[in-house]
């Protein structure tokens, strides 16, 4: 075992790890940060994506020991980070995902949100092509991606104070909700 100090979501956390433990294992099983998901566990699916020094990184193929000294952001850190910078509630991207229904089972969502956050931190108004490219390493088996792309466009537009066209399906949803109500 060796003792390492990991800087996670702005906190310094001292933990004992074995050399062969991945960052994902340290996060989930030593620190209780189970928001980062263990999907394929071999670098394909993107469910374990965290930010390391601001860059989307797969925690399942990163050794915990080698993450020492780097700034790590997990899904648990997004809302506190937003509030620390003067915001209210959750990260606007999380709010937008909620409003757009950009998830079903939610397993890919932490990783997808972190890839999206890294994109908007670097490029505040990405076009759809740039969003698709930034999310290329996050597989979602439920949504078909459309609402994820719309949610990111919505969050980016609102941050810039620009009105974003409401997705067509939202009107259908409202109509359906209206007719189903007594």
């Amino acid at each position: 075992m060796r003792v390492v100090t990991l800087r996670i979501n702005g906190d310094e956390r001292e933990i004992a790890v074995r050399d062969h433990w991945t960052l994902l294992e340290a996060l989930r099983y030593e620190l209780g940060l189970t928001g980062s998901k263990q999907g394929c566990d071999k670098g394909d699916c993107g469910a374990c994506t965290v930010l390391v020094d601001g860059e989307p990184t797969l925690a399942c193929v990163t050794l915990a020991v080698l993450a020492e000294g780097r700034e790590i952001t997990t899904i648990e850190g997004l809302a506190p980070r937003h509030r620390a910078s003067g915001g209210e509630g959750a990260d606007p991207l999380q709010e937008a995902f909620d409003r757009c229904g950009a998830l079903q089972c939610g397993f890919c969502q932490p990783g997808t949100l972190l890839s999206a956050r890294a994109l908007l931190d670097r490029t505040p108004r990405p076009d759809r092509e740039a969003i698709r490219a930034a999310l290329a390493g996050n597989l979602c088996r439920c949504t078909g991606y459309t609402q994820i792309l719309e949610a990111i466009e919505l969050a980016a537009g609102e941050a810039a104070g620009v009105e974003v066209p409401t997705p067509e399906w939202m009107a259908d949803l409202r109509r359906a909700e209206g007719t189903s109500r007594p």
Partner: peptide, 9 residues
């Protein structure tokens, strides 16, 4: 090559 995350690492 691979995906954005894998190109970062």
């Amino acid at each position: 090559i691979a995906s954005p995350q894998l190109r970062n690492s």
